[in-house]
Nucleic acid binder design. Sequence first.
DNA 1: ATCACTGGTGGGAGCGCTCCCACAGTACCT
DNA 2: AGGTACTGTGGGAGCGCTCCCACCAGTGAT
Lengths: 351, 351
Amino acid sequence: MASHGARGRSGGRPTLEEVAARAGVGRGTVSRVINGSPRVSDATRAAVEAAVAELGYVPNTAARALAANRTDAIALVVPEPETRFFAEPYFSDMLKGVGAELSDTEMQLLLIFAGSDKERRRLAQYLAAHRVDGVLLVSVHADDPLPDLLSQLDIPAVISGPRSAQETLASVDSDNYGGARQAVEHLLSRGRRRVAHITGRLDVYGAQRRVDGYRDALSDAGHGADEALIEPGDFTEEGGSRAMAALLERRPDLDAVFAASDVTAAGARHALREAGRRIPDDVALVGYDDSAIARHMEPPLTSVRQPIEEMGRRMIDLLLTEVADRRPLASRGLDRRQVVLATELVPRSSS
Amino acid sequence: MASHGARGRSGGRPTLEEVAARAGVGRGTVSRVINGSPRVSDATRAAVEAAVAELGYVPNTAARALAANRTDAIALVVPEPETRFFAEPYFSDMLKGVGAELSDTEMQLLLIFAGSDKERRRLAQYLAAHRVDGVLLVSVHADDPLPDLLSQLDIPAVISGPRSAQETLASVDSDNYGGARQAVEHLLSRGRRRVAHITGRLDVYGAQRRVDGYRDALSDAGHGADEALIEPGDFTEEGGSRAMAALLERRPDLDAVFAASDVTAAGARHALREAGRRIPDDVALVGYDDSAIARHMEPPLTSVRQPIEEMGRRMIDLLLTEVADRRPLASRGLDRRQVVLATELVPRSSS
DNA sequence: ATCACTGGTGGGAGCGCTCCCACAGTACCT
DNA sequence: AGGTACTGTGGGAGCGCTCCCACCAGTGAT
């Protein structure tokens, strides 16, 4: 008689209890089946699954979150205004990788923009409320307080691009050092001898590593480091243009430029044109990121490609591991919390 | 003595109960303060707020969701693959409006892509679990089962672009009829007399309305409807090109074309060029959407602009109203559940 | 036989809120 | 005086899960 709806708000969604009654088992057993515990007999499992299907039972996430103290959600935090998010393929590629890796998981992905101060305050509140089990942090600046907030709140997080060589958070990065070497070695192999470098913002660790790669590639090839061939940029087009002009003034004999980003390269190209230098005839140019800009530049730009989609996938891998490790008070599997992925040089006619 | 942490897991986050103890009031009172109920004396409210601040209390969303049977989250569902989402400014504009209108709300926005079958199944499950209080549905096709699923689950939803004149869901749309009239009237005012129309996919209600607007504008101006001047397209570039070719064959004397989208217009332009017709000298061309394509076309394309960002804002308004109306079993404020916003003609040199 | 174990199971005790009923106090009519 | 009505407040009873302990076979070692 008391089959379903003991306290039956008959209209409502079925509950665990109702499934249990229907299947003739206890609540605990249904819970075990739902959560895929192995310690359930096959017969019982079948009975429960039948009841679930008949009743159209769907677990109540809020109740689960409350009881288990987890949310089964992670956030992808973009500390940029939404405009940049849409403008740069970096983010959509990243999102594609993240989505793919998450697709056969129960985890739900939240996309959070934190470009403005207001949004950042909201985010802090959000994190303080522990509304996600983990955080993916992309495109973080050196002075960003977010990573520290996360460690303080003890929320698992993975960062794309470590802030320094001593990064404490788990991170996934592409090989900035190796990518820079590839670019420079490519230019040298093409017979260039006076290779300049326009750097990125040097408070970004990845930009520093690119400078290191540039230097080492030159010295390994027996070229002394010529500091006059290095000019700081800031990843912007104007910065690239300004830096190029400075370089041309200082070292008019340069025959190649490695720019720390495609956008920077676009600026450099502009300055080169103004100075009447032909690309690649007079000066070869290599960028970084292999963005749409590179493909559409005139002439098409040789660039270093980062496996961004794979970075997204690896970030999820890492994060899920960190989240899982926190569930039982057990084994930390921190074997490799800093992942570095190889880059690839995409040669085009600018070099 | 028993001030805080009656059952104190000292490490954990403070709870409502702890705040109540600290402030020397009952749980109910703290809850009232947190939720902004007016029936709390100023003195008590101040005491509670102080306790909240001292303890750094943040409400537990899961507990609240469980007890109150709401989630304080809404979903923006995009039934397209992510690629299109990033490619078309429509979505980013929409998102901007939505975000703006939501920013001084406690509501959290979830972005859900449902392009593939797998994703759609996930979404259905997600909605069945009632993980959001409401849904924003953009870019829905006529045969999409999603709207019905939503009404069936009794989840408030707002659709961008009604599926028919009898749309039951709340909707926000731009004035497709009026926009088409604007386009045609503009062409007539420029002295054009044989204005053709390449339609959109006619299973999209908005496309039908554009045809209606086109027809009425012509007949109101005393031009009989010439069905030979109407050719179905499908919103794609190839479709536009094909339709244009057909029109030219059938009515080589046409002197203007109103295309149901900028993309369609791009296709039409191609066909016109191939046929040796000059734009606008021989044939004037008007598109729809005022997208980047319109601005960058050669010659720049006259187009009808939809206020997409405002549409996003209005959709949120409507949705929040619907969600609020469902909270107490009270007053439905369904005054205007179908919003239509005016369009604007942006004249450029193609007409 | 007795004593471990082990796989399988039931159900109590929470998780941290909101809802709502009860009730004290004050104020304003009859 | 007694009624009625409100404001402000406390706290019990859930919301629907998970966790964990207790318990019941069955199995093999002693």
